[in-house]
């Protein structure tokens, strides 16, 4: 009994001792692993840190670049389409006292009629604006604007004194549109150096405003004083002939219109300077008449 008891006690003691020894070993192994992981962890952490720093730095550089690009872009000069639309409107606004466009007027139904007229001649997708003037100082003009669009100035006293029909008014505007398509107005108001500037950028450069003010001055000079020359009138008249000759109704109206203007210029002192701007309705009629054969 006693021996059996002693044996059991001995066995228990031995197992307990062994268990302790084993636990110590495991702890030592775990400690070793933990120490190694600590070393690796530092390396890993440093790597992540440097990556993050790089990311932030790159992000900052990208933001600065974006900000700089935005700043540079703000110095853009408009291209030709946007430029001419802006300049024409600015000139019209600045010359309101001479042009007298801010007045109450009835609806002449020009918008629909002129649109159908253009379609009949094969001019599609043309957007136009007509600004009616309450002055005889300026009779009719097409100012430069964007693309194929049109901006017309049209004097109400001028069309009233000749009692022009909607068709005759449309033909008058068509002639101005032809003149615009031939680039006659733009050519006369463009100063030296303008073409190179359009569509460029003036970041960190001085912009010569003299050029742009020169454009506005040239607008006034052309519209109020110098107008177009004989060569330019001939070119437009021939264009109109090509356009309208096939349509008898329009052709007759064009000849009637030129006749009315010719008589007005000869008989009305208010329009004595018309030939200075558009020389000359009488010549235009002669250019358009068929030549008589000498037999």
């Amino acid at each position: 009994m006693f021996i059996r008891f002693s044996l059991i006690l001995l066995l228990l003691t031995t197992f307990s001792f062994a268990g302790d020894r084993l636990g110590e070993g495991r702890k030592k192994a775990d400690a070793e692993i933990f120490t190694d992981f600590k070393a690796i962890k530092e390396v890993l952490e440093n790597d992540q840190l440097s990556n993050n720093v790089k990311k932030i730095q790159n992000g900052r550089i990208a933001q600065q670049k974006k900000k700089l690009n935005k700043e540079i872009k703000s110095y853009d000069i408009p291209g030709k389409n946007e430029f001419w639309k802006f300049m024409s409107e600015l000139w019209v606004v600045q010359n309101i006292s001479k042009l007298k466009w801010n007045f109450e007027k009835p609806d002449y139904g020009l918008d629909d009629y002129f649109a159908r007229f253009l379609e009949d001649l094969g001019y599609y997708e043309i957007k136009f604006k007509v600004l009616l003037l309450d002055t005889s100082l300026v009779t009719h003009f097409a100012l430069p604007t964007s693309g194929r669009d049109a901006l017309f100035l049209l004097s109400v006293p001028f069309i009233r004194v000749m009692d022009l029909s909607k068709l005759e008014i449309s033909i008058l505007m068509l002639e101005d549109y032809m003149r615009s398509n031939l680039g006659q107005f733009k050519k006369k108001v463009t100063p030296k150096g303008l073409t190179e500037l359009l569509g460029s950028n003036f970041y960190k450069k001085k912009l010569d405003m003299g050029i742009f003010n020169g454009v506005l001055q040239n607008y006034s000079k052309l519209v109020f004083n110098t107008g177009f020359n004989f060569e330019e009138q001939f070119a437009v008249t021939k264009q109109m002939q090509g356009m309208l000759h096939g349509k008898l109704k329009y052709w007759k109206s064009y000849m009637t219109l030129l006749g009315k203007i010719s008589n007005l210029v000869k008989g009305n002192v208010v329009y004595k300077d018309y030939n200075k701007i558009y020389p000359s309705p009488e010549l235009q009629i002669n250019w358009l008449k068929p030549k008589k054969e000498i037999l």
Binding site: Y108, D111, I126, K129, L131
Partner: peptide, 10 residues
Amino acid sequence: QYVTGSSKVR
């Protein structure tokens, strides 16, 4: 003040 219009799309 503009009288605006446009010819149709073809």
